[in-house]
Computed example of a mutant assay.
Amino acid sequence: MTNQIAHPEWLVERDWLAAHLDDPRLRIFDCTTHLRPDPATVYRVEAGRAGYQEEHIPGAGFIDIQADLSDNESPLRFTQPSAAAFAAAAGELGIGDGNRVILYSQTSVQWATRVWWQLRSFGFDNAAVLNGGLTKWRAEKRPLESGARRYPTAAFTARPRPNLMATAEMVRAAVADDAHTVINALSLDQHHGTGGTVYGRPGRISGSTCVPTASLLDPDTGAFIDMAEIRARLTAGGAAADAPVIAYCGGGIAASATAFLLTLNGFENVALYDNSLSEWAKDPSLPMEIGVPA
């Protein structure tokens, strides 16, 4: 699959990782988070640490995205932290400027792509996502270990790229500009306002298109579907290589997979709306719409 993409260095297969497990520069992380339904708060965040401790890829550490790599003073979950806070947290996790980082999840790839996008937004380009994550690694009967691992602390230098994380004002400007495309990574039911989780008001950001993250994954393995088909679906959703694209979802997690895939395939002007509908849908001054687009 990797020979079909513009940046094969950002997506690794299981054979590659198995052959490099002993590389001392490698930093492997399970990034799993679970969202448990909660009628009072939409969902409750639960780190996937228990599953990680039960079994993980040999040598892997664990990243708790909410606790480790989010601004926990923000009222919105998974908010991007400051550059200084991110650099300190990454260094504590053992990510240094000279490391190669491999990210995976026990469940959806979106948790790995969220951390990948955060790293990239702070100027770190030597990270990759494991295609198929733990699901395919386990199905192929590759080695696993239990317990917990921590890497030695390291020095991480943040070089912020603020254009990679969109704000509400950036999205408002984008939907008013035909040169921009805004893509919803949630389900079609959520896009139309007819079902699924609601983050305040039902429906979508006005003028946005929809390419569900789930439609870009093999439902049995969690791996990405054929890259040519992914490119076709993103293009059908309005993405163009020479035009700016903003991806959004409920809280900047599922859409990180969209942003990752766009970038992986050579779309150069891509941003992720950090707080997404968790912010937008709660502000009545920001335009939303429901129904099937004409």
Rank of each mutant, 00 (worst) to 15 (best):
P202Q: 10
T153I: 01
H34V: 15
V182M: 12
H20P: 00
G94L: 05
L234D: 06
G196A: 04
A50V: 08
V270K: 02
S187Q: 09
T181K: 05
W117E: 04
S215M: 09
V270Q: 10
D242P: 00
W10S: 10
Q110G: 14
A6M: 04
D30Q: 10
F86A: 12
D220F: 04
M1E: 05
I57V: 15
E46V: 15
A176Y: 11
A89P: 00
L11E: 04
T41W: 01
L261Q: 05
A112Y: 15
N265P: 00
R14A: 15
A85I: 09
I246L: 02
E92C: 04
G238M: 08
L277D: 04
R49I: 14
S285K: 08
E73C: 04
D22S: 15
R138L: 13
E13N: 13
A247V: 03
I57G: 01
F29P: 01
G266Q: 09
P244G: 03
E169V: 07
R233D: 05
R159C: 02
L217H: 07
R138D: 12
Q110N: 15
L261V: 08
H192D: 14
R159I: 03
Q106N: 13
G207T: 09
A168P: 00
A185V: 06
D23A: 11
G203Q: 14
N163M: 03
D177R: 13
R77L: 05
N269P: 01
F156L: 02
I253F: 07
A148Q: 13
M227L: 14
R201C: 07
A6E: 09
V109I: 15
G133V: 06
L186G: 01
G252C: 04
E169Q: 14
S105W: 11
